[in-house]
Amino acid sequence: MKALSSLALVVALAALAFFLGRVEPLRVVLGVIIPYVAIAIFLAGVSYKVIVWSLSPVPFRIPTSCGQQKSLSWIKAGWLENPHSTPGVVARMALEVLLFRSLFRNTKAELREGPRLIYGERRFLWLGALAFHWSFLVIFVRHLRFFIEPVPRLVMVLDRLDSFFQVGIPLLYITDVTIVAALLYLLLRRLRDPQVRYISLFADYFALFLILGLALSGVWMRYFARIDVVAVKQLAIGLVTFSPIVPREVTSLFLVHLILLSTLLAYFPFSKLMHMGGIFLSPTRNLANNNRRKRHVNPWDYPVPVHPYQEWEAEFHDKIAAAGLPLEK
């Protein structure tokens, strides 16, 4: 139900863009105004969220230790899984952000029985997540060729690598395949695994369908509709140079792609997609486990009622004396 309604919403958005994109006066709205608004919301929203997060204090140093602490010199400390210094933290965070270290831990199992396939499912979550995120990043960078003239070397190199197999005309991008496959896997997993289906919200499906729509519309334009790339580049450069135009050659199909992207951008700051920024700030991961070595200060620390020794001694005075323990008074 949640899945269907979020699918319906994405389809409706796409259809709306497709039909409104054929109405001449509205093309400026779809191709210029909405993208600008979406980018503004994205930038403002994401900065706001990140600022709120980073301004909120970390009263205690609470890293999750996943390895041996640094204690005695002759015990090998787990500098990566339980970092005690900044280089260790940086390395741990890099592994988390770039390779999803913790998610990979999921696959480590011993003494398993029965068919391997079931065990494999766990590896697939890590693999699917990794394939999706990396493909998305590569596709994003590839898209810079539309926005920058002359196209930077890095983008061209990446472009060539991505179409390494030299299949088809136009050349097939590997990431186009992997992102769609990964998204379908993540979607299928959400629908089929009863545990994950139970915890899934409308928003979880919506994000998946939205990005899937974005990817599929891109794929359709490149391989099947073969849209006018020059016109698209004109529009893109127009947007970034603040002299926007919507060339006549830009089709309605492209506007669908653009509207889905705009939706994603505008939706981003209000959604779980903010995990992209949040992961860097997670106090169980980005702090060194040097708790006893270096004092951590709580900025909002306040005095609390305690039971001081004097009161304690006064209350139990006679008993302490009878037991022969030393007394202050």
Partner: peptide, 16 residues
């Protein structure tokens, strides 16, 4: 519970 029965049936790792 139906959300759990799949896990009970399919997870083959005896410690998990």
């Amino acid at each position: 519970p139906p959300q759990t029965s799949g896990f009970l049936r399919n997870e083959k790792d005896r410690f998990r």
